[in-house]
Write a protein that binds this DNA or RNA. Structure first.
Lengths: 216, 216
DNA sequence: GAATTTCGTAACTGGTCAGTTACTTCTCCG
DNA sequence: CGGAGAAGTAACTGACCAGTTACGAAATTC
C-alpha cells in the first residue's frame, strides 16, 4: 500500500479552493432556500457541502456573508441566462411570447431563486442594498422588452404608450407569483398547480393576458 | 382609596381572556410578519402583547400552534373584507376596475399578510394544509369575478372563454407581487416603489392590462 | 369571605447553534 | 525532500431560546 491517498470516494483530492467554494455555495443555496436565513443551519450547509464549517468562515466570514454571496450568485445566474436571449430576429408578438415563456420557465425550474428573493424581501432587501454588485444586475430582460415594444409599435401590432418598466413588472409578476404562492394556492384551490398540465394552462393564460393587452 | 385595583395604567384589570388572546395574536402577527416563523421570538411576542409566555402556551400550545392561528386569522380577515364587496350594481368594466383596486389596496395596507403568506409558502403550506378551517376560505372574490365575467360577456364588453380561476390568479398576482417584492424591486430600479405616486402608476397599469386583455 | 379558578412573574432547563480554537493532515513548491 | 501554509476535524464556548415550573396575586363563585 504505497499511497492510499484517501479513503473517500475516488474524487481527486488536490487543492481546489474554488471547487470547495462552489460546493459550499451550492449547499448553502439549497439550505437557505428550504429554510430561510434564520432557519438555515451552518452545520447542515457544512455537512452537505462535503467541506466543513471552518472553510465557510474562512471564505465568507459569517452566515450573513454567505447569504449575501448566495444571493448575488443567484442574480448573476439569472442574468447570464437572460443574456442568452435573442429575440432580435423574431416578430414582436413572437418575441414577447418567447420572453414570457422564458421568464415563466425560469421561475419553474429555479424554485430556490424564488425562495431566496422572498426571504430577502422579508428582510427588506437589507443585504441586497449593501451589495456592491447590485448596480450591475439591472436585468437585461428590460432592454429586450423595450426593443420589442418599440418594434411592435412601429409595425402597428402593439398599442402605444406602454411603459417598459411597468410591462416588465407585469411579466415578472405573472411568472413569479404563481410559483411563489404555489403551495398556498394549491391548497386553497385543491389542485396540484405544480403539475405540468396546470403550468401550461397558467402560462397560456398569462401570455394571452399580455398579448391581449398589447393589441392596439 | 377603597379600590386601587392596579398600579399599572388605568386600563381595567378584570379578567378578559378573549382580549388577552387577541392581544397575543396581534403581537404575534407583527413579530411573525417581521421575522418569519423561525426568526420570531416567543419572548418578544409575550412582551409586546402585554401578556406573558405562560398565557401563550396556555392558549396556543406551542409556537407552531400560535403560527397557525395567526395565519387562519389573517385569512379570515381578508375574507371578511372581501365579503363587504358589492359590485352587483356596477357595470362589468366598472366592477372589474373596483375589484382590482380593492385587491391592490388590500395588499398595500396589509404588508403583514403578504409576509405571512410568503413564509407559509416557504414551508410548503404545511400548516395551512393541516388547518381544519381551510376549506371555508375559498375566497369570495372568485365568485364576484365569475359574476362580472358572465355579465360582461353577455353585454359584449368582455371577450369570451375567460377562465375565472385564471383571471383571479392574474389579478391576485398583479397586486401581490408588487408588494411582495417591493424591496428588491425598489433596490434594483433605484426607485421608492412604496411612494403613493409609484403605487398609483402601478395600479393604473395593472388595471389597463386586465381591461385591455378583456376587450372582445 | 373562603375556596377555587384564572392570571402573572421570573427563574430554570435542556437543547441548539453561530462562531472559535487547537491540533492534525495533506498539498504544493522550491 | 522538507518546510510552509492550506485544508480538515472535532471539541468547545457562550449566547440564545422554546417550553416548563413553582409560586404568588388577583378575581370569581358560592
Amino acid at each position: 500500500m504505497p499511497k492510499p491517498k484517501t479513503d473517500k470516494s475516488d474524487t481527486k483530492r488536490t487543492r481546489q479552493p474554488d471547487v470547495t467554494r462552489r460546493n459550499i455555495l451550492d449547499a448553502a443555496l439549497v439550505e437557505f432556500a428550504a429554510k430561510g436565513l434564520s432557519g438555515a443551519r451552518v452545520d447542515e450547509i457544512a455537512a452537505r457541502s462535503g467541506s466543513n464549517k471552518r472553510m465557510i468562515y474562512e471564505y465568507f466570514g459569517n452566515k450573513d456573508g454567505l447569504w449575501l454571496t448566495v444571493l448575488e450568485r443567484a442574480y448573476e445566474r439569472m442574468r447570464e441566462e437572460e443574456h442568452a436571449i435573442d429575440v432580435a430576429r423574431m416578430s414582436p408578438v413572437e418575441g414577447m411570447r418567447y420572453l414570457m415563456e422564458f421568464n415563466f420557465k425560469f421561475c419553474s425550474r429555479n424554485p430556490e431563486f424564488i425562495a431566496l428573493l422572498n426571504a430577502e424581501n422579508l428582510h427588506k432587501a437589507s443585504f441586497l442594498k449593501n451589495s456592491k454588485k447590485i448596480r450591475e444586475l439591472y436585468t437585461p430582460l428590460l432592454v429586450v422588452i423595450t426593443d420589442l415594444l418599440q418594434r411592435g409599435q412601429r409595425e402597428g401590432v402593439f398599442r402605444k404608450n406602454v411603459d417598459p418598466v411597468e410591462l416588465y413588472t407585469t411579466i415578472a409578476a405573472l411568472g413569479f407569483f404563481y410559483f411563489s404562492n404555489i403551495h398556498t394556492l394549491s391548497t386553497i384551490f385543491g389542485r396540484n398547480l405544480l403539475s405540468p398540465k396546470q403550468q401550461k394552462v397558467r402560462l397560456d393564460h398569462s401570455i394571452a393576458v399580455v398579448l391581449g393587452y398589447l393589441r392596439p
